[in-house]
Design a protein around this nucleic acid. Sequence first.
DNA 1: ATCGTCAAGTTAACCGATTAACCACGAGCT
DNA 2: AGCTCGTGGTTAATCGGTTAACTTGACGAT
Lengths: 355, 355
Amino acid sequence: MNPSKKPTPRNRTVVDMDAIAKKLGVSKTTVHYALSRKGRVSEAVRSQILTVASEMGYRPNLLARSLRTKRTQTIGVILSSLSSSFHAHLLEALDHAAQHNGYNIFLACSYRDADKERELFDMMLSKGVDGIIAAPTSNEQHQAVYTQLGGDGVPIVFVDRDVPESHIDCVSVDNFVGGKLAAEHLLEAGRRRLGFVTMTHRGHQSSTVTERLNGFNYALQSAGLPPATVWGTNVLNQSTGEAVGYEVMSSALKSGDVPFDAVFATNDNLAYGAMRAIREAHLRIPQDIAVVGFDDQDASAFVEPPLTTIRQPVQSVGVAAVELLLRHLKAEPGSNRADPERLKIEPTLVRRGSS
Amino acid sequence: MNPSKKPTPRNRTVVDMDAIAKKLGVSKTTVHYALSRKGRVSEAVRSQILTVASEMGYRPNLLARSLRTKRTQTIGVILSSLSSSFHAHLLEALDHAAQHNGYNIFLACSYRDADKERELFDMMLSKGVDGIIAAPTSNEQHQAVYTQLGGDGVPIVFVDRDVPESHIDCVSVDNFVGGKLAAEHLLEAGRRRLGFVTMTHRGHQSSTVTERLNGFNYALQSAGLPPATVWGTNVLNQSTGEAVGYEVMSSALKSGDVPFDAVFATNDNLAYGAMRAIREAHLRIPQDIAVVGFDDQDASAFVEPPLTTIRQPVQSVGVAAVELLLRHLKAEPGSNRADPERLKIEPTLVRRGSS
DNA sequence: ATCGTCAAGTTAACCGATTAACCACGAGCT
DNA sequence: AGCTCGTGGTTAATCGGTTAACTTGACGAT
């Protein structure tokens, strides 16, 4: 505002506890005790220190504190993507829960690259996070993660994807049940020729998708039907789910005779794309083809027709993950590591117009 | 896997540089020089140190390093929301650009709370981030932020929202142009009775919305038309844009006679909701009411009808913000702070079926 | 008068990596 | 022999906050 008056006097010297101590003629320790209201400091001295500290604009150096106390009040979060609706909501839930408990988030995205993911684990441990919440990208590297956990006593919690072979706690949605719910719903509505729309990343199908498919087929089998036909494609670049769903469904419909009367997409984005392809083929939803998605994104109740979908309780997953991690942080000293805790949260079916 | 064999021998003692030094009978300094390939170390000793380090599973303590070097290779990111599509994509772009340049992200969400935002700035500075990228929530606190910048020489870059009164660099989308594009497009299509759909948070309208409205009205005025009617509502809780758009449009249409032949929504989510309300009122899009959104979210090309919208080049914003910040980090020593750099990135109109 | 106790501070040693400054030794030169 | 210089190291201080252990003086009890 006022360019003639510098915002702060060229204060090149750092305001640390020594600066405050010197100014008041006391020792650094006393300043520390006053600021942390812990040790024995007279009320008079304490209040002086407090005022001087705020006058000088003292700001504690958390790096120094953490170096000594071995606590950073920071939790590392590693996700395979940040832009998807699911991950975005998950991240917000994690941040919210963390902040609520006095922690902050150190974030990194692995972009579904298992090597990068491993690097990120190392990086986070080096930076001193108190714990890590990660959505593991692939299963191949569980061994390494497992070792890391044992190695430094930094608790880890997996979210979204489980790694059954590891000894690491996990909070995830019950994807098998989700797939089963979708199939049961479609069967109930009289559909018999069911398709499954999905995608793989660099040749890798995520375990969540596999579980959804297993649950889906389990329900079909229980009804005496053969497994669903899987329509999918592999993507390398970062194409959107919508585009993939559209492509996959378009080519499935191009064959001439419509091979199914219902499709289950492994996420809502794929479903949006599939729905457009169905419309463009002049077929009606749900009369000709029913569509069920997975996620229940905000938009799903508003597309045309409103999308029937399996709701993932993202919020709950995030909160549960943070709470689980925090429990470990409090228990701490080489605690008697019982069997890993595997929290499975139930998804629910949301019936709408598309089925 | 093999429970009888511990993953790592109960290695309670930390593996630090001293441990390596002792094991080889050299000094800590030599270890450091070997590891950082900087000082004078013979090839023989260096390779020994390297192997021993990896054998012992040495992992540098970056807290200690940062305390000494005053660099954390970390940039703080403060956003007002994490779950919205725009913020999610922005965050991914920031993370990607940061990682690409050897930095990592310390994340915190302000939840549109200016007080919390200020706390977060403090927290990040305390934790020693090298710079901060923030989407400022409100304009009231620019003064404080300005002071902080001058105070500790930690560079700050604003994204998304500008704070014209501050002396802080900013990368944002040109929202005025965005609004103008939307209006010009609708006028060109022969629409004359234009509505503007928006929402406020806890009574506060974000400056981006104001700019979009200004640009919109500017175009109307240039065409000799009166300003657009603004249809909006205030939200306190975290209701979705879709729900708000639906509510607002429903009540606008309830009046009986349709007061407009086109609406411009300040984001695509609002547009999705508005479109549903229009459909439910048995009006046709675009024949009866044309709809234009803002963002160009992934889903927008796939909803029915495909949504005409103003595309925000989120990717570019993120990359530009990181690069701008990095330039400051490299320039550093109390550099001659010229006028703040204000990068405005042009949005583009994406014509689709809804208009 | 003496000892114990306690409040109020102080000293100094960390935490682990970095870095300026210094040292020892051998080769090369005059 | 004496001097310089370069190589390959070492020592010790430092970053800023924390914490165990110690000091000092006052006061009460014995």
